[in-house]
């Protein structure tokens, strides 16, 4: 379980301090697919980056499986991160490494004792993961030879290399077309179902949220304005942003 307690994040900027997150508390249960939705600039990425401490909260605490990890540094921080996979909108595959070497990469860091193993063990696990994402035959290709959807699937395989219990997805499908988005979402849902990986998924697309999320939180200007089961939030939206988001979506669907 991931608990975010009273998280605030203040960025010092030239024109004064900017509060990107303002006293946010959330808890994400193990094994669920949790969606974070909201308009651009609401603070979704900043919040999710606090989970693996790519962003240090200015105040508040991050508790994972009962352990306060907010202050972790060095070896312990790297070990924590190796247990949390992350995929990004801009995919970020290593261009100079083959697909299989990309997938192996997290294990070669030896950030944690789990999932490292010998080169041969790493290679066979990487092949197995490429099978899971349906790209076994692309093992020796290079990222620039793959389509966007294939690249994102490689990134997913890479994020799974160290057998993480959590997968953070920051707009993982935003760069993909609708059909490819569907197949990547199916894959994420399957990973959640079959491997029991907790998924935290940022999206600005209600289509995406609807397809995979169990519960969602809606963010606006550094606040969580409402949260609950997908059904509750989408069927009975209380916050204006949620209504606006739903309105925009309906407008689009009609048009």
């Amino acid at each position: 379980m991931i608990e975010l307690n009273h998280i605030s994040k203040v960025f010092p900027t030239r024109s004064g301090d900017f509060t990107a997150l303002d006293d946010i508390s959330l808890s994400i249960e193990s094994g669920e697919v949790f969606g974070i939705i909201g308009e651009s600039g609401a603070g979704k990425s900043t919040l999710v980056r606090c989970i693996n401490l790519l962003e240090r909260p200015t105040s508040g605490s991050v508790v994972i499986d009962g352990r306060d990890v907010t202050g972790l540094a060095g070896r312990e921080l790297r070990e924590l991160r190796s247990g949390i996979g992350m995929i990004f909108q801009n995919i970020s595959l290593f261009q100079q490494r083959s697909v299989i070497d990309n997938v192996r990469f997290p294990a070669t860091l030896k950030a944690s004792s789990i999932g490292s193993g010998s080169a041969a063990e790493q290679a066979s696990r990487a092949r197995e993961l490429l099978g899971v994402v349906g790209l076994a035959e692309k093992a020796d290709a290079f990222p620039n030879q793959l389509s966007g959807g294939q690249q994102q699937r490689v990134a997913i395989a890479r994020a799974l290399m160290t057998s993480p219990s959590v997968l953070l997805c920051d707009e993982a499908t935003s760069a993909l077309d609708t059909l490819t988005t569907g197949s990547v979402l199916d894959l994420l849902a399957r990973i959640n179902r079959e491997l029991g990986v907790t998924i935290v998924l940022i999206t600005h697309s209600l289509f995406v949220a609807r397809k995979v999320c169990g519960r969602v939180a809606v963010m606006e200007a550094g606040h969580v304005v409402e949260q609950g089961s997908l059904q509750d939030v989408f069927d009975h939206p209380r916050a204006d942003v949620t209504k606006a988001l739903l309105g925009i979506e309906t407008g689009k669907e009609v048009a």
Binding site: L77, R78, L80, F94, L109, S112
Partner: peptide
């Protein structure tokens, strides 16, 4: 983004230099 991805995997500064920047 590659540096950040490596960080998110638990890479140390030295590993990011050799395995990401130089490579």
């Amino acid at each position: 983004g590659l540096v950040e991805a490596a960080q998110s995997m638990g890479a140390s500064t030295g590993q990011i230099v050799t395995k990401v920047y130089l490579r």
